[in-house]
Write a protein that binds this DNA or RNA. Structure first.
Lengths: 147, 147
DNA sequence: TTGGATGCAAAGCCTTTGCATACCT
DNA sequence: AGGTATGCAAAGGCTTTGCATCCAA
């Protein structure tokens, strides 16, 4: 994790941004909750545990910055707010998707490589150059189907 | 299209809703703009052309109703508002996805059947029963890549 | 000291809701 | 008549912005 933080610091510095204490806390919260898909306010509440006087706007601004730098991703699960997850668009992460339970809202991580075959097709048929993709699968999770 | 309208009317009536003039206009706007992914406000403006005194709330309420009945779908392309498209979840529609140009925002319809193989896998690995899915592919469209 | 970073409060946007009125059966 | 549908305005919820202050290089 320290490696990720210092790499982030370099990435920011390269663009004349600073990895300030507040920004680092924000990033750490996301790293420590990789599978939780926190909303901005949830991130804010966790950052506040270590920096009680942090402002909500600061967290929003940090999240936007990280997103622009490609350190984190915003996802919309349809509940009216953005949710964030750490994730660089590298190979290991390319096939990371989500199962969304429409009954309880649970989000389950899921990996599948479905894109290789598609990428060449959309290039050929639409001359569209894919940079990233999102697959969301809606349905009923095992907990809810038992009830 | 008239067939779709009358089927919608029946579907509503079965649940004690009425396909009023306003609701029908709203549905027609969506049918006539199937590939446009209109926002609520855009739908509202189009409905207003025929019913100048329609209220925005009425359109919102109609959209919500149609969505609950499964006549239309709401999609989020990341621009801060919901967009709507007509589409029953039938077989012909199951493989309908979107290419989203991150430069100009253009949305391109795209069909691919990637789900059959996946469905059994998520059932086996996660005991998750899929009901629907969304695939969004981000990248650069042919218009923008030329520039 | 100088420009970015931050906190606070206000403003913005999209969407939903309350309520009185209008409509249809 | 009775309940649904509607318009209008207000309220809500999430996010962004303005501005004065703070901070670090």
């Amino acid at each position: 994790m320290e490696k990720i933080i210092s790499e982030a610091a370099e990435k920011l510095k390269a663009l004349d941004f600073k990895l300030t204490a507040r920004r680092e806390m924000t990033l750490r919260v996301l790293l420590e909750n990789r599978d939780k898909h926190l909303s901005a306010e949830e991130v804010y509440n966790l950052v506040k545990l270590e920096a009680a006087d942090v402002g909500l706007a600061t967290v929003y601004r940090a999240l936007e910055l990280f997103q622009e730098l490609g350190l984190i991703r915003a996802i919309d699960f349809g509940d009216g707010r953005k949710r964030y997850e750490y994730g660089i668009e590298d190979d290991s992460d390319l096939h990371h998707h989500h199962l969304i339970c429409t009954k309880c809202g649970r989000i389950i991580e899921f990996n599948v490589d479905l894109i290789n075959e598609i990428e060449s097709r959309i290039k050929r048929e639409h001359n569209f150059t894919m940079t990233s993709h999102q697959l969301k699968i809606f349905g009923i999770c095992s907990e809810c189907s038992g009830k």
